[in-house]
Write a protein that binds this DNA or RNA. Structure first.
Length: 583
RNA sequence: GGUCCCGUAGCUCAACUGGAUAGAGCAACUGCCUUCUAAGCAGUAGGUUGUAGGUUCGAGUCCUACCGGGAUCGCCA
C-alpha cells in the first residue's frame, strides 16, 4: 500500500535534488485547496532563502524538470510559490484499483513486535466509564497496528496487587470478623465459593476508601494488610483469589460487550515473584539505593528542568508500589516477547510516573536502549462542569449502565423510525446493540487522544451527525442497494466527475493509517471514515443508481459502492465496531 | 512556587506539526421523501483563533509578556 504522496514526493524531490536543493523539500501532500488542485508541494518557498532566489522562480525551474508522464495532468504555480499538482484520471483510477480496492488483507508483516498496555481495570471495583477510554483507544490501536504489519500483544494489566486490595480486605474484616479468611490460626481449606458477588464490590470499595481517608489507623491497617497479602498470607490470599475470579468474569463481560480484546490477561500480581530477584540485581548493580527509609532508583538528571522524584521500589513499610510492578512487568515482557516497542494507554495524569519508570528501566538496562517505551496518555473525562466526571449522586457511572442506556435508546429509535419493521426480536436486539456500541465507541475515539474531553451523555448516545450510527447507516444503505441490485457486472473503480472526490478520499487511506501509527491517534481514522461516509452520502443523493438506464454506468457505480463498502467496513473493523445488515 | 498542557463559531471539537479562503457536528433558520433506508441530502447564518507585542514571503500553529482554566511535583493508582 504505497502512498500516493510518496510517489509524487519522489518525483518532485528528484527535481529539487537536480537543482542542488534538499530532496525533502519535494514533499507532496494532499492539497488543502481541492478547488485548485489535488496535491500541493510547498518546498519552493522553503527553499527561497537558502537558494537566494524568488520562490516562484524556483518553482518554475522545478516544474520544468518534471516529466508529467501518464501520472500528472496539471502542474502549476500559485500564490507565493505553491506547486499545485493534479493527477490524470487514469492515474488516480489505477492507484485506487491497485492499492486501495480489496484492502481487506492486512499489510505485510514488518517484523516488529509491540506490546500494548491498556484496560487497566481494578480487581475489587466495578468497571465504570473512566475505564472506557483506555480500553477503546488501546484496542483500536492494537487492531490498526496489527493491520499495519506489527505483531501486537494487548495486555489488560489488571490492578490487582496494590493498596486497594488491603483496603478492601480490612473493610471486609470489619464487616465480617468471623470469616475464616481473617482467622490466622485457620488451617483450611477455605470455601470454594466466593462469599461476594461483583455487585457487593460496589459498596465495599467506596466504604473502605472513605474509612481510610477519615481514619489514619484504618489506612495503616490497610497498608499492613497489603504487605501481608503480597507476602501471601493464606487467608488473605484465598479471599483475594475470590476477588480475582469474580472481577475477571465481570471484566470479560464488559470488554466483550465493547468488542475489546486482549491477548494477555496479566496483572500486577503475575510478576510478584520477579520482583525479589529484580531488586536483588538492581541493588547489586548499584541502581537501587536506600533513601528516606524506602528503596528507590534515582532517576533525576542534572539537566532536568523539573523535579524527578525517585522511583520507589519498596516503601518504608516494605510493600511494593505500582512502579515496582511496572518495572517487573517490563522484565517479564522483555523475557517473554522481546518487543521493539511498549506502549501504555493510560491516563495522562500518570505521565510523570511513566517517565520515571522508563528512565529507571533504561538506566538499569532492564529494557535495552533501542526499545521504544511510550506513554500514549489520554485526557481526563470531565463532566459538563469541566471537572472530572461524576454522576449526580457523586459516584461514577458503571460501564454496563452506559452500554444499556445506549442500547435502550437505539431500541427506541428503531421502533420510532420503522414501526412496522419485519425485524425479529433477535435481529432488533442485535441492531440496537450494534448501534449503541458504535455510538459510544465512535464518540470516544473521535476525540484526540491527548486532550481532556467532556463526558456528555447525550452526545455519547447520539445517532446523528458525526457519530458511529451515521457511518453504520451509510454502510447499511450500500448493503441494501447491493442486495437489491442482485447480480451485476463488477468492474474496477471508475473515476468520473461524480466519483472523483470519492477516489481522492480513498487514496488518502494509507496516509491515514500511517498517521494513526505514528502518533497513536485513532481520531484521525474517525475523521477519515466520517468524511468518506459523508462523501458517499452526497454521491448517493445526487446519483440514483438502481434506476440508472445506462447499464455500463449502473455497473460502474454499483462497483464504486462495493469498494466504498469494503473501505468503510474495514475502518469500522479497525475500531472494533460491528455493522448490521439492516438498521 | 517549579514544570507542563489548554484557551478557535452560542455549545462540543478539527485544522495533516509554519502554508493559500480557519473546518465539522450539535443548536437556529430555509428547502428536499409516488428514485435505491430522511439515523439522510442541499443551503443560510454564525470568527479580530484569550489579550498585547515579536520572528518571516507567510502564524491558530514558533518566541516574549500578561489574563483565564487545568494537570503534576516521594512512599495511592
Amino acid at each position: 500500500m504505497k502512498k500516493l504522496t510518496d510517489i509524487l514526493s519522489e518525483k518532485i524531490g528528484a527535481a529539487f535534488a537536480g537543482l542542488d536543493l534538499p530532496q525533502e523539500l519535494g514533499e507532496v501532500r494532499f492539497s488543502d485547496r481541492p478547488d485548485l488542485a489535488q496535491f500541493q508541494c510547498n518546498g519552493a518557498m522553503a527553499a527561497a532563502k537558502q537558494a537566494g532566489r524568488a520562490p516562484r522562480d524556483i518553482a518554475t525551474d522545478i516544474i520544468a524538470k518534471i516529466d508529467k508522464g501518464d501520472l500528472i495532468e496539471t502542474l502549476d504555480i500559485a500564490g507565493p510559490g505553491f506547486i499545485n499538482i493534479s493527477l490524470t484520471q487514469n492515474a488516480l483510477q489505477n492507484y485506487v484499483n491497485t492499492e486501495i480496492a480489496g484492502l481487506g488483507a492486512a499489510l505485510p508483516e514488518n517484523g516488529q513486535t509491540i506490546v500494548l498496555d491498556y484496560g487497566g481495570p481494578n480487581v475489587g471495583k466495578p468497571m465504570h466509564v473512566g475505564h472506557l477510554r483506555s480500553a477503546i483507544i488501546g484496542d483500536t490501536l492494537r487492531r490498526i497496528l496489527s493491520f499495519a504489519g506489527y505483531k501486537t500483544l494487548g495486555d489488560v494489566h489488571m490492578g490487582d496487587w496494590g493498596t486497594q486490595m488491603g483496603m478492601i480486605l480490612m473493610e471486609l474484616k470489619h464487616q465480617y470478623p468471623d470469616w475464616p479468611y481473617f482467622d490466622a490460626d485457620f488451617t483450611g481449606p477455605y470455601p470454594e465459593e466466593s462469599p461476594l458477588s461483583i455487585n457487593d464490590f460496589e459498596q465495599i470499595y467506596p466504604k473502605a476508601s472513605k474509612a481510610c481517608k477519615e481514619d489514619e489507623a484504618r489506612a495503616e491497617e490497610a497498608r499492613a494488610a497489603t504487605v501481608e497479602l503480597q507476602n501471601k498470607r493464606a487467608g488473605y490470599y484465598a479471599l483475594w483469589q475470590h476477588f480475582m475470579d469474580v472481577s475477571i468474569a465481570a471484566m470479560k463481560e464488559n470488554y466483550a460487550a465493547l468488542n475489546v480484546y486482549f491477548d494477555l490477561w496479566k496483572g500486577e500480581s503475575d510478576v510478584h515473584d520477579l520482583i525479589e530477584p529484580m531488586v536483588a540485581q538492581l541493588k547489586k548493580d548499584g541502581h537501587a539505593v536506600k533513601d528516606e527509609g524506602a528503596l528507590v532508583i534515582k532517576v533525576a538528571r542534572n539537566d532536568d528542568t523539573k523535579k524527578f522524584p525517585p522511583l520507589i521500589l519498596y516503601k518504608k513499610d516494605g510493600a511494593v508500589m505500582y512502579g515496582t510492578t511496572d518495572m517487573a512487568t517490563l522484565v517479564e515482557r522483555m523475557n517473554l516477547y522481546a518487543p521493539d516497542k511498549v506502549v501504555y494507554i493510560v491516563d495522562q495524569r500518570q505521565h510523570l510516573h511513566f517517565e520515571q519508570v522508563f528512565r529507571a528501566a533504561k538506566q538499569s538496562n532492564i529494557v535495552p536502549q533501542k526499545v521504544e517505551l511510550t506513554h500514549a496518555g489520554f485526557g481526563t473525562m470531565n463532566g459538563t462542569d469541566g471537572k472530572p466526571f461524576k454522576t449526580r449522586e457523586g459516584g461514577v457511572m458503571k460501564l454496563e449502565d452506559l452500554i444499556d442506556m445506549a442500547f435502550q435508546k437505539a431500541s427506541a429509535k428503531i421502533d420510532a423510525v420503522n414501526p412496522e419493521s419485519d425485524f425479529s426480536d433477535e435481529e432488533k436486539n442485535a441492531i440496537a446493540n450494534a448501534v449503541g456500541i458504535a455510538a459510544i465507541k465512535f464518540a470516544d475515539l473521535q476525540n484526540p487522544r491527548q486532550t481532556d474531553y467532556v463526558f456528555d451523555l447525550d452526545k455519547l448516545v447520539s445517532f446523528e451527525g458525526k457519530t458511529g450510527p451515521y457511518i453504520l447507516y451509510q454502510i447499511v444503505r450500500i448493503k441494501s442497494m447491493l442486495r437489491k441490485a442482485g447480480g451485476f457486472q463488477k468492474t474496477d473503480f471508475t473515476v468520473d466527475d461524480n466519483t472523483q472526490n470519492l477516489a481522492l478520499l480513498l487514496a488518502q487511506f494509507p496516509n491515514v493509517i500511517d498517521g494513526v501509527v505514528q502518533g497513536y491517534t485513532p481520531h484521525i481514522l474517525c475523521d477519515f471514515v466520517y468524511k468518506l461516509a459523508q462523501e458517499f452520502g452526497r454521491f448517493y443523493a445526487a446519483n440514483p443508481i438502481l434506476v440508472e438506464k445506462d447499464e455500463a454506468k449502473r455497473n460502474a457505480y454499483l462497483s464504486v459502492c462495493a469498494i466504498l463498502e469494503d473501505t468503510l467496513s474495514k475502518c469500522m473493523e479497525l475500531m472494533g465496531i460491528d455493522i448490521p445488515e439492516r438498521m
